[in-house]
Design a protein around this nucleic acid. Structure first.
Lengths: 345, 345
DNA sequence: CTGTTAGCGCGTTCAA
DNA sequence: TTGAACGCGCTAACAG
């Protein structure tokens, strides 16, 4: 074993200037272990020493070195909201704001912090996982995953992960809205309003939400004995909605109804309609999806389906919390969606 | 190809399942030190052993334990964009999206990751600093700081920090737009358009940008021999702009010009004007600030001043990078702002 | 209730 | 070019 570690009381090698627990302990006249206990609020420490330590902490401006703490506890106290989309997308769609806020709200009385991680433009989605494997975060809520690679890879992780939206892989916990049912309700509403030449702008087809909303749309049409008057693929964004709307108008200039799989796409489509001289709802009725802020600010206000982003996220947060506490549950939670009737349909 | 699954050598106490450098070294038949060198790409390692180590890394799925690495290197490889505002605010103002994106763009060819930290509703602003003092991030760009407490506290830090917007404390590096000049230009434009009963909706008065834009407004008016027809205080948000606009209309129903210190406030004000039966620009001319996406989507499109958020952030990012590299510079960088004439004025 | 003793996993001298 | 030894700062047994 080592002979002498050469650290006699006086000169410690604290070059960085940041005070260490050792410094605090010395200033308080106790041992490191005791100081640690006093600070971590935990166990049996006399009021007297607790005060002394607290005073030393304040005096020295001590802050625990998280790296050292993590190394031994194997926990970082940080939870992630992982979004495999670029920051441009994340900041331009209020859906993500709701999700982040929802997850945070599930941890308000919990002393973990919640960070938002987005992917850089070039990066493959799996890079997000390195964030988990590196041990920098204790668990995560993943939203807006494309394909199933990421989901599949999470199974090798030790940290708990909860998805928002069907991950497309069995046995993984997730929360979602019933997109098929929601799309059916939306489409039936259009039919009920007298539309007969109905089209849809889908979401990203590499995401279950995109496929399921299209499916519900087709179901409702079939149920009423109608053929779709057009199907254009979008990607949930405003720009995607505009492009898709142009396609739709070109192929079916006489369309009288549009179901868009997101409010952003619906808003983009409405602008294209307006530019092309169509009146909403007189000529074309439009239903969106998400019940986001955007749906209240279009002219006319957009009829939409509740997306329940905040609730999904809150529930996902709770599920994550349970997993962290050793009470995982791996079955999905499915919320239903309701029609919010406004002027556009 | 060592295809041994399970834990070879048995006796290590690796309970967590995550392979350690020790495991890699053993699998490659070298010592920890050598494995470390091979992985960190660094120094003198023979091609042969480098390959062996690389293979072992892949086989075992090894990922370095960041906590351990941080503990010894004293660096985390993470940079922060610190915003002492709630997530609701951050997500609803595109200014922050631009800032984040700008900072990220300054680090694209750099292998540090950039995280966004916002404050929780209750939290005092200084809590943000604990993120720095804990050693979890190596440096930060701070934006939207209120008051000077936070700025003052940063002087005790060892990590470099760059502000966007005048921190109000000398000797700290920051980048800003010349708000006084910009507000003057905006106000002169209003005057040039024939406005005579001109008002302003200010930003938050505990922020230099808020005070300076008010100052520039007053300067330009004085220069033209005019009295302000009203001054209402906002907080840069849409809701704040609406409230302020109502105050203004109540006090001066005959106003014919509004300079708002942000596009969001201008947009809110325009909606209030419209509801109250005023036409823009016929009855009232409006100029905003930021040249954000929002300014293009109002009806009519908003005349505004370039806020240059992205450029400021990019420059701040570069300054941070220089500081990290040991080349700090502590003088401010001030960008000027230009008028973007659109239909509202 | 408190101090002592071990490591956590890694980078990094210093010798060989 | 490689290996042995040390310590980063902290928490967690285990004794007192």
């Amino acid at each position: 074993m080592s002979t002498d570690d050469g650290r006699p009381g006086g000169a410690n090698g604290n070059v960085t200037g940041a005070p260490t627990l050792e410094d605090v302990a010395r200033a308080a006249g106790v041992s490191r272990a005791t100081a640690s206990r006093a600070i971590n609020g935990g166990a049996l420490v006399s009021q007297e020493t607790r005060d002394a330590v607290t005073r030393a902490v304040v005096d020295l401006g001590y802050a625990p070195n998280q790296a050292a703490r993590m190394l031994v506890t194997k926990r970082s106290g940080v939870l992630g909201v992982l979004v495999p989309e670029t920051d441009l997308r994340v900041f331009s769609d209020p859906f993500f704001a709701s999700v982040y806020h929802g997850v945070v709200s599930a941890f308000t009385d919990h002393d973990a912090q919640v960070v938002l991680a987005m992917s850089k433009p070039g990066q493959p989605a799996e890079t997000m996982l390195s964030y988990l494997t590196s041990g920098r975060i204790d668990g995560a809520v993943i939203v807006s995953h494309h394909g199933t690679d990421l989901a599949r890879a999470t199974s090798r992780l030790t940290q708990p992960v909860v998805f928002i939206g069907d991950p497309g892989v069995g046995g993984l916990p997730y929360v979602d809205v019933d997109s098929v049912q929601a799309a059916q309700v939306a489409t039936r509403h259009l039919i009920g309003q007298g539309c007969r030449r109905i089209t849809t702008i889908t979401g990203a087809m590499d995401m279950p939400a995109g496929r399921q909303r299209q499916q519900g749309f087709l179901d409702a049409l079939a149920e009423a004995g109608l053929e779709p008057a057009g199907v254009a693929h979008g990607n949930f964004t405003d720009a995607g909605g505009r492009t898709a709307a142009r396609e739709l108008l070109e192929a079916s200039p006489d369309l009288d109804g549009i179901f868009a799989a997101s409010d952003l796409m619906a808003a983009g489509a409405m602008r294209v309609l307006s530019e092309a001289g169509y009146r909403v709802p007189a000529d074309v009725r439009v239903v969106g999806f998400d019940d986001s802020e955007a749906s209240r600010q279009t002219t006319p206000p957009l009829t939409t389906m509740t997306g329940r982003a905040h609730e999904m996220a809150r529930i996902a947060g709770r599920m994550l919390r349970n997993s962290l506490a050793g009470r995982p549950f791996t079955y999905p939670v499915i919320l239903n969606s309701e029609l919010v009737p406004r002027a556009s349909a």
